[in-house]
Amino acid sequence: MSFLPTILNGLMVGGLYGLFGLGLAFAFGIMRIVNIAHGEFIVLGAYIGASLLSVTHLPLPAVIVLVAVITFALGWALQTVMLNRMIGPNPVPAMVATMGLSIIIRNALVEYYGADIRAIDIGPLQDQGVSIFGTSIGVLPIIIFLIAVLLFVLMHILLTRTTLGRAFRAAADDFEILETLGFNRKRVYAIAMGLAVTLSAIAGLLLAIRSSYSPYSGVERLLISFEVVIIGGIGSLRGSFLAGLFLGVVQLIGLRINPNSGPLFGHLAFFLILLAKQANLPALFIRRRA
């Protein structure tokens, strides 16, 4: 059997992993905040989307926009109410606080929706396929991948062509300069966190449409996001995108080889890359004087 369909599917799911990583890297790059609840926001996007779909019967694009608005507000509130009070050289308080938040969201989802594994059903589109390079690929994964690419392009335009984007990049370098230019640092941060959460939640909703999710999926999705950030580097849209594609392919090939391996192969690939990045060979031979 050929691995081509697996690789193509890995690329398509990888686009979403890239978005996961982009959201995490965005908050970390600008505010030096590692949002441990990132994975739970990804899952929350799926639950909010699923509820809206079943309650309102709106078309999927409208639901995606609604989820974006709601999760932006959540991210904005998270930064304004909690994280803006924890900015500083010590990263521990924000990490512990968002860890607490992740426990709250995870268990609230279990209490409200139950712990079972779900999938979102959006009707006949799910079963349609097209033939590429002689292998059949679902139409839905292609659409989802294109949405992911579109979001990356929009982020690129936002960061390079708009005042807000320049403010983000300036905030990542030096927030004091930013304040002398008349920006309100805390407002810029709140918008950035809103955007970071929105990106991840939309990606989480899209992932839930093409695979399954449960309240406990958040941890795995946080770890994937983190791996994307480390492999792709912070502050690089292209890096996040490529790292996402790489992890997507590795994970799906791993699952083809061993269906019970879960995210194991992705983790191992991540550590190989981490080691390769760390292996500063000359340093092994030159003794550094303390």
Binding site: P93, V96, M99, G100, L101, I103, R106, N107, V110, E111
Partner: peptide
């Protein structure tokens, strides 16, 4: 479930 939620809330509030 409530115990875990309260646990998370106490951790966040402490921070």
């Amino acid at each position: 479930g409530l115990f875990l939620i309260i646990q998370g809330a106490i951790a966040a509030l402490t921070m």
